[in-house]
Design a protein around this nucleic acid. Structure first.
Lengths: 340, 340
DNA sequence: AGCATGAACTCAAACGTTTGCGGATCTTGC
DNA sequence: GCAAGATCCGCAAACGTTTGAGTTCATGCT
């Protein structure tokens, strides 16, 4: 049924400690006895109890992963990459899905410290909320690395992308193609990325003299459905801008569905650019111009940072800001030529 | 830093057991002392050590989730649904990604029993491999529920979909539309679903007199890239069937990319049907006809079965087979009309 | 007064490991 | 023949909980 060290020890008439040493390859047990122990353990199907072991040893080899949403391929790919880095080194994973809910995030984090994970990779819900909590976690000796999003109130290593730079690239591109009016489907503003991106869009648009009227900004609530509804609302406007900026991948999907339903022609009726690249951007007709971030790279880097943090806890780690890749496709109309 | 029962006890000059009882709301401690203890615990930021607790209590409130691939939205949505059912009941999750690798699956499962999870929700890699392992796991008292895929060699509760019925629906539809030749992009055949679907396609096609030539069957290896390459290979054939069957969602994506690249017109050049529905099926031009399964429903049901299994271990659980939904879109040409 | 009842709390064992220490036995060198 | 050292193994404490059993003491009942 279940075998323990004690049972193996008893069966062989030796002390549990001897069995422990034999199985973990420690010195102090004769070769003869060792193979006898190993064989019996094998036969009895012995597997050590990780809880007991970690209780004694002080580490669990578990990493907690905190993400807002499983359905978003961006996050599932990032997690996948982390797993690829960390699993070969013997780590297991505690999966925590916050659903953009700070309260739930709190419960989940307490859970993680309760289980004494060796580290936490988190994309926090809010850019300031739960600051105390994250601080507390670190005070207990559990290293935290933020990825994709971070708390702006706390000095913790992070791997994020250059949101502002990416936005500037997109807006400049639109400007260059002759666009002077712009609509925006936003993320929920409490998140780090939501704030960064909307801020950057507004700022750059202002600098270039691109007009964004209040009713052209719609809250997509970071979800596909939210963006779908936001898009429907958006197209109710009498006057429309020449271009539409969508703030992330899942919302892009919602918008694309709405576009298809409303039979809006891209780019003739309106030009579209999105933050993030996902499958559907390429499959859509026409394919969508965007700035892409590489979730796998982000996950790998965050995981690697975590390893460094675990191995050299005293060493200071710098935050990493990843560059994005601009992908020009066919969803933006060149207004300069159109007029010329 | 970190607070333990013992420390709280010492600070108040009482015995740890009293603190334990006070905090867990058990009788046998005066109201006065109880609130003193609760307050101090609060103040010291006490969080119980789940390992120690579970070691003593015999259960962990952790469920292991075993899936082949995080990147596949089918699985991430199923997991998401499980999480939604189980989290409110106090369960946490161990995430295991097998990457379709039986060896890795073995390591992961041993990990799970090592951590003494309360149950395992698994979509096993192979339809027969690791049978012994899964048996062993259950013999140790850890309930297992299979979802999406199952081991055919073992009597374990499962929630899968009606693969054969779904295939029949699709094939019959094609037949009805006048198609008499068919190509197939297959999953890797070792998986439960891979076997079921290919088998069903071949059988039904034969019954109806639909011809599937050997070179029209290409192995998509269950991955997007695999299917992409398989599709490119497929279209090198001189003679082509009138319709193409793609065995799951991620492979559909690969095929759609290939179609776009090769500028193959759907449904004029070839008709396409797929197993599974995903975002891209709707976004593609034309939208793709398919049989859809509901991953969220699957996840919910599997999770609920797990709860039953945990609560009433002796009760026999029947396997559940979910019906699929046929979604007619515009990717199949009606050859009967075309000729008429 | 005598005795049972019950409340409040302590004791100690248990869950399954790991590990420093110490004791016994054996080898080695002189 | 014997001290020194190495080798092998047992002992017991420790990790942080929970929990059945036991102790103390006040109270109620007859």
């Amino acid at each position: 049924m279940k075998a323990t060290l004690k049972m193996i020890a008893q069966a062989l008439g030796v002390h549990p400690s001897t069995v422990s040493r034999a199985l973990s390859g420690k010195p102090g047990v004769s070769e003869e006895l060792r193979i006898k122990i190993i064989n019996l353990a094998q036969e009895m199907g012995y597997l050590p109890d990780s809880r007991a072991r970690s209780l004694r040893q002080g580490h669990t080899r578990i990493i907690g992963i905190v993400i807002p949403d499983m359905g978003n391929p961006f996050f599932s790919q990032a997690v996948s990459a982390m797993e690829k880095v960390l699993f070969p080194l013997g780590y297991s994973f505690f999966l925590c899905v916050t659903e953009e809910n700070s309260e739930k995030e709190k419960v989940l984090l307490e859970n993680l410290v309760s289980y004494k994970v060796d580290g936490i990779l988190a994309a926090p819900v809010d850019r300031v909320k739960n600051t105390k909590l994250y601080k507390e976690v670190q005070k207990r000796g559990i290293p935290v690395i933020f990825f994709d999003r971070r708390l702006v109130t706390i000095d913790t290593p992070y791997a994020v992308i250059d949101n502002r730079g990416a936005v500037v690239t997109l807006i400049d591109y639109l400007w260059q193609k002759g666009h002077r009016t712009l609509g925006v489907i936003t993320l929920h503003k409490e998140s780090y990325t939501g704030m960064e991106r909307l801020d950057a869009v507004a700022k750059r648009a202002k600098e270039l003299g691109i007009k964004i009227e209040a009713e052209w900004i719609k809250d997509g609530m970071s979800t596909e459905m939210g963006a779908y509804k936001a898009a429907l609302e958006f197209f109710k406007n009498r006057r429309l801008p020449t271009a539409l900026f969508v703030s992330n991948n899942v919302m892009a999907l919602g918008v694309l569905k709405a576009l298809k339903e409303l039979k809006v022609k891209v780019p003739d009726d309106i030009s579209v650019v999105t933050f993030d690249d996902s499958f559907w951007n390429q499959i859509f007709e026409p394919p969508i111009t965007c700035v892409a971030q590489d979730p796998e790279q982000l996950g790998m880097i965050a995981a690697t940072m975590m390893l460094n943090r675990i191995r050299y806890p005293e060493k200071k780690l710098e935050g990493v800001v990843l560059k994005t890749r601009f992908i020009e496709r066919a969803s933006v109309k060149d207004l300069t030529k159109a007029r010329g």
